[in-house]
């Protein structure tokens, strides 16, 4: 999995909060980051004594782009933030963060979904495929090839979501006409308006499928 990254104490708190004391609770209670680690267990104890609920991390086992991952996370972490923040996979984009744009589309167990509205903790044993997982080594996925060939993007921000969504659409197999493809790609907004070329790319892959 590449080189081990060294984390500063502040990053450790951010990415690997300890059981029994969440980052938020810690931040609420403490003002100086440096003393966090020494005091963390005591804070959990103090909070329990004062009747403040202590929110525990959740253990999560899942497979992301072919690699098994085990992690302990704050239950509030969305699948989108898990990919981007915990695993530094920045291909999946955050647009609206509320299910309204499709930029965060990934495949979970082969179905396209909006990663921004999924609590990662609900993905126990799931297989997640993001844009980083579509290519086989240096060989791009046919949908990636088609997007390039048909110039199906301008700024590219919506593109990872468009491509994952299009891969899901082809797998689902419900689109018969251009109008069907447009309707079934309507969960992905493109601010640059590359829709015609996106349609051409999806159509080509679908015909070859």
């Amino acid at each position: 999995m590449g080189k081990e990254k060294k984390y500063t104490p502040a990053e450790k708190i951010k990415y690997f909060p300890r059981r029994g004391t969440t980052r938020r609770e810690f931040i609420l209670t403490m003002t100086t980051a440096g003393t966090a680690f020494a005091l963390a267990p005591k804070i959990g104890y103090a909070a329990r004594q004062r009747g403040i609920p202590v929110f525990e991390n959740v253990k999560l086992h899942l497979n992301i782009n072919g690699a098994a991952r085990n992690i302990s996370i704050d239950p509030r972490v969305t699948l989108l933030d898990l990919l981007r923040e915990n695993f530094s996979m920045h291909g999946t984009k955050k647009g609206c963060d509320h299910g309204q744009c499709g930029a965060c589309t990934v495949l979970v167990n082969d179905r396209r979904v909006n990663a921004c509205l999924i609590l990662a903790a609900t993905c126990e044993n799931a297989e997640v495929t993001s844009i980083e997982g579509l290519a086989q080594g240096d060989k791009l996925h046919p949908m990636q090839e088609a997007f390039i060939k048909h110039d199906a993007f301008q700024c590219g921000y919506c593109t990872p979501g468009q491509i994952c969504s299009a891969v899901g659409l082809v797998k689902e197999g419900h689109a018969k006409t251009d109008a069907d493809i447009q309707e079934l790609m309507s969960g992905n907004i493109c601010r640059c308006g590359a829709y015609r070329n996106i349609l051409a790319a999806v159509k080509e892959v679908q015909q070859n499928a």
């Binding site: 299910g99 499709g102 589309t105 179905r111 396209r112 979904v113 909006n114 509205l117 999924i118 969504s165 899901g168 659409l169 689902e172 079934l184 309507s186 969960g187 992905n188």
Partner: peptide, 9 residues
């Protein structure tokens, strides 16, 4: 209703 992604969820 919604979008294909949301309906899948």
């Amino acid at each position: 209703g919604a979008s294909p992604q949301l309906r899948n969820m």
